[in-house]
Amino acid sequence: MKTLHIVNKSPDQARFGRCLAALEASDQLLLTENAVIALADAGIVLPSENYALAADLEARGLAGRPTTTVIDYPGMVRLTADADRIICW
Protein backbone atom coordinates (compact mmCIF):
# COMPACT_ATOMS: atom_id res chain seq x y z
CA MET A 1 0.00 0.00 0.00
CA LYS A 2 1.30 3.41 -0.97
CA THR A 3 1.85 5.74 1.97
CA LEU A 4 2.11 9.52 2.06
CA HIS A 5 4.68 10.63 4.63
CA ILE A 6 4.39 14.23 5.80
CA VAL A 7 7.43 15.51 7.65
CA ASN A 8 7.80 18.94 9.23
CA LYS A 9 11.05 18.37 11.13
CA SER A 10 14.34 20.01 10.23
CA PRO A 11 16.79 17.52 8.60
CA ASP A 12 19.03 17.69 11.69
CA GLN A 13 16.22 16.31 13.87
CA ALA A 14 16.36 12.59 14.53
CA ARG A 15 12.77 12.09 13.39
CA PHE A 16 13.58 13.40 9.90
CA GLY A 17 16.14 10.62 9.48
CA ARG A 18 13.70 8.05 10.86
CA CYS A 19 11.10 9.17 8.35
CA LEU A 20 13.51 8.70 5.42
CA ALA A 21 14.58 5.31 6.79
CA ALA A 22 10.95 4.15 6.96
CA LEU A 23 10.12 5.05 3.35
CA GLU A 24 9.30 2.35 0.81
CA ALA A 25 10.42 3.03 -2.75
CA SER A 26 6.84 3.68 -3.92
CA ASP A 27 5.93 6.01 -1.03
CA GLN A 28 5.33 9.72 -1.35
CA LEU A 29 7.12 12.30 0.79
CA LEU A 30 5.82 15.79 1.51
CA LEU A 31 8.24 18.25 3.12
CA THR A 32 6.60 21.01 5.17
CA GLU A 33 7.80 23.71 7.55
CA ASN A 34 11.51 23.25 8.49
CA ALA A 35 11.74 19.97 6.56
CA VAL A 36 12.04 21.95 3.30
CA ILE A 37 15.59 22.84 4.39
CA ALA A 38 16.48 19.29 3.24
CA LEU A 39 16.22 20.52 -0.35
CA ALA A 40 19.25 22.76 0.21
CA ASP A 41 21.42 19.78 1.21
CA ALA A 42 22.46 17.80 -1.86
CA GLY A 43 23.62 14.99 0.43
CA ILE A 44 20.05 14.14 1.43
CA VAL A 45 18.56 11.56 -0.91
CA LEU A 46 14.79 11.81 -1.29
CA PRO A 47 12.34 9.32 -2.81
CA SER A 48 11.45 9.88 -6.46
CA GLU A 49 7.99 11.16 -5.59
CA ASN A 50 8.75 14.08 -3.31
CA TYR A 51 6.86 17.30 -2.75
CA ALA A 52 7.48 20.53 -0.84
CA LEU A 53 5.11 23.26 0.33
CA ALA A 54 5.62 26.48 -1.64
CA ALA A 55 4.87 28.80 1.30
CA ASP A 56 7.49 27.10 3.47
CA LEU A 57 10.16 27.24 0.74
CA GLU A 58 9.41 30.91 0.15
CA ALA A 59 9.51 31.75 3.87
CA ARG A 60 13.01 30.26 4.05
CA GLY A 61 14.29 31.75 0.79
CA LEU A 62 14.76 28.33 -0.82
CA ALA A 63 14.15 27.40 -4.44
CA GLY A 64 13.81 23.63 -4.15
CA ARG A 65 15.25 21.05 -6.52
CA PRO A 66 14.35 20.23 -10.13
CA THR A 67 13.23 16.77 -8.98
CA THR A 68 10.86 18.15 -6.33
CA THR A 69 7.24 19.02 -7.06
CA VAL A 70 6.41 22.30 -5.35
CA ILE A 71 2.78 22.45 -4.24
CA ASP A 72 0.50 24.95 -2.52
CA TYR A 73 -2.02 24.20 0.26
CA PRO A 74 -4.78 23.12 -2.19
CA GLY A 75 -2.16 20.76 -3.66
CA MET A 76 -1.49 19.37 -0.17
CA VAL A 77 -5.23 18.78 0.27
CA ARG A 78 -5.39 16.84 -3.01
CA LEU A 79 -2.32 14.79 -2.10
CA THR A 80 -3.76 13.83 1.29
CA ALA A 81 -7.23 13.14 -0.10
CA ASP A 82 -5.76 10.78 -2.71
CA ALA A 83 -3.44 8.95 -0.28
CA ASP A 84 -4.31 5.44 0.91
CA ARG A 85 -2.48 5.99 4.16
CA ILE A 86 -0.85 9.03 5.77
CA ILE A 87 1.90 9.21 8.37
CA CYS A 88 2.62 12.60 9.95
CA TRP A 89 6.14 12.56 11.41
Binding site: N8, E33, Y73, P74, V77, R78, A81
Partner: peptide, 19 residues
Amino acid sequence: TQAPQTALAFAKAALAQGY
Protein backbone atom coordinates in the same frame (compact mmCIF):
# COMPACT_ATOMS: atom_id res chain seq x y z
CA THR B 1 5.66 26.05 16.47
CA GLN B 2 4.17 26.53 13.00
CA ALA B 3 1.54 23.81 13.56
CA PRO B 4 -1.56 26.04 14.10
CA GLN B 5 -0.62 28.11 11.04
CA THR B 6 -0.04 25.16 8.70
CA ALA B 7 -3.19 23.45 9.96
CA LEU B 8 -5.34 26.54 9.38
CA ALA B 9 -4.03 27.04 5.84
CA PHE B 10 -4.71 23.34 5.14
CA ALA B 11 -8.20 23.52 6.67
CA LYS B 12 -9.19 26.57 4.62
CA ALA B 13 -7.91 24.96 1.42
CA ALA B 14 -9.79 21.72 2.21
CA LEU B 15 -13.13 23.48 2.67
CA ALA B 16 -12.56 25.59 -0.44
CA GLN B 17 -12.22 22.36 -2.42
CA GLY B 18 -15.42 20.88 -1.04
CA TYR B 19 -13.93 18.51 1.53
